[in-house]
């Protein structure tokens, strides 16, 4: 009865027990947040042990939910601790202060758009992050919010096309790919650009 599946489960359950026990004894709020990131790993492990293509398709939502909640929670942490804005300056490197970031970012974004889908979003998002890092950032948050909302709407529309008029599946597929592209770009470009209260 002890197949590979159960042996794998044993290891993952032990990891989960250790991680949750750490959460029991930890008192500091920030460390709790860091431990939570760790706790997510066993849950991904349990899903991965399923070992089918379905498992991979379940890991993606699982991962995204974890990341999304971490984003919200860390912002709540920053607000509740009253951490004031720390100015993020552009990096003080000669190459970066020239036109290089703009060119590299444009290249990355173009390539990301060609790739489309999740990977494309990652690549294009990297371009935006790089640009923000090099240039410092300020405004633009309304724009990002809007892009996030639009991509969500595209996605929902694509979903309904898939479900109710499946003969247009190719259209739906491309809309979904564009939706996730925008979405991942927005999420990636937010990483590390929010700090403290916007009103400082």
């Amino acid at each position: 009865m002890w197949q590979e599946y159960s042996i794998g489960l044993l290891l993952v359950f032990i990891a989960a027990v250790i991680a949750f026990f750490a959460l029991v004894v930890e008192k500091d709020d920030l460390h709790r947040l860091l431990l939570l990131d760790l706790v997510e790993v066993p849950s991904l492990g349990i899903i991965a042990l399923l070992g089918t293509d379905l498992a991979e398709a379940l890991i993606l939502p699982g991962l995204v939910v974890g990341i999304a909640e971490l984003l919200a929670l860390s912002q709540i942490y920053v607000t509740k601790e009253g951490l004031k804005e720390r100015k993020v300056q552009g990096l003080n490197i000669e190459v970066i202060q020239a036109d290089a970031p703009l060119i590299i970012s444009v290249l990355l974004i173009c390539y990301g758009v060609i790739l489309s889908g999740f990977t494309g979003g990652g690549v294009a998002g990297l371009g935006v992050v790089f640009y923000f890092m090099a240039r410092g950032h300020r405004e633009h948050f309304e724009l990002l919010e809007m892009a996030s909302g639009i991509s969500w709407a595209i996605w929902i529309f694509a979903f309904f096309v898939f479900m109710f008029i499946p003969e247009y599946w190719l259209l739906a597929l491309f809309m979904a790919a564009i939706g996730i592209l925008l979405k991942v770009i927005v999420k990636m470009s937010l990483v590390g650009t929010m700090w403290g209260d916007g009103n400082g």
């Binding site: 919010e145 969500w152 927005v186 937010l190």
Partner: peptide, 11 residues
């Protein structure tokens, strides 16, 4: 994606 959207709205 809705969960992402909500989390982003909060943050």
């Amino acid at each position: 994606t809705t969960i992402l959207f909500i989390a982003f709205a909060i943050a």
